[in-house]
Design a protein around this nucleic acid. Sequence first.
DNA 1: AACTCAGGCAACCGCGGGTAT
DNA 2: GATACCCGCGGTTGCCTGAGT
Length: 326
Amino acid sequence: MGHHCCSKHKVKRGLWSPEEDEKLFNYITAHGHACWSTVPKEAGLQRCGKSCRLRWMNYLKPDLKRGSFSVEEERIIVDVHRILGNRWAQIAKHLPGRTDNEVKNFWNSCIKKKLIAQGLDPKTHNLMPASKTSTYGGAAAAATTGNNSDEIFQSPTTAPFTISSPNKGFDRAKGFDKMAIPPTLMAPPQSNVALHDQTAVPAALSDLQCRDSHVLMSFANASSSPSLGHMNAASSSSFINDQNGFMDDCVWDSTDMEHFEALNQIEVGDKVQTCTLGNEKGLMMEAYCGFDLEMMDDSSLLPCGDFYNGGGGGGGGSMEQLQWHC
DNA sequence: AACTCAGGCAACCGCGGGTAT
DNA sequence: GATACCCGCGGTTGCCTGAGT
């Protein structure tokens, strides 16, 4: 049974031969692929358009990077997956030359197992209950011993979420170079479901404030919300370091109003995560949990782009190298 | 050398969203 | 608005290969 789109035609399935690859490659490089459904016919292939597209995207495309994933790539995958979940195509966008299929396979065959071995739930990136951990082999203890690439797999409770975009739309030298966001703030919807009882609650984040000059961000009710115990756990990375939940390590240089302008509205799908930054007299940023992760898509991606965890220390900021395509 | 098994990878399948008619 | 078609995505399957016995 072939694809629905080509069930009427006699199509070949299975592995591609070098000849087929050559035909497809030659055709696409010469004519492009305006319509995949016509490609096989035009290229003289007994394949369906879908199959051709897949082969091109995952194998023939010239800018694909082959070979094993680097530690840095691995780190990016883990970090972005923590935010996006199984949105492989989105994750792959942060890894030039890698395909969604490649990332997915790497995740399933390698990263997932490492996370499990460290006692982390690969879906939520949270520590699994001891019983569950032991089910997976009881290797949670290994999580404390890593001094190699396994360090990538840190519990989100100890690694504040940070984003860095050194080359997009903002000159780091001008300021606005420090900002840390806890994983709870950036948690994807699916994670919210999973973490409902243990992580950020929207209400707790509804009063995020940024003050001018030496900007502070605060979460109302931070200390009273059990959910924010999770965030306070991140205080070792100087994200939140007092009982009121103030993040005094979050410094925005408000003289760079250009970027506050840019930040003025972050529309995140229809669930707007209002990120309202007012004028320089009284900056105010509102946010709540439950980010619609469409924000990770190109233009809608945090337009400011440049979040940097200056206080992460000790590898806490595992997203330093993440480049947002915005 | 032969066999088994697990891991990695490529490809397929089905679904959802977008667009044209 | 309804329908058909196409594309892109994520989940899954199955093949290939290498390590272990």
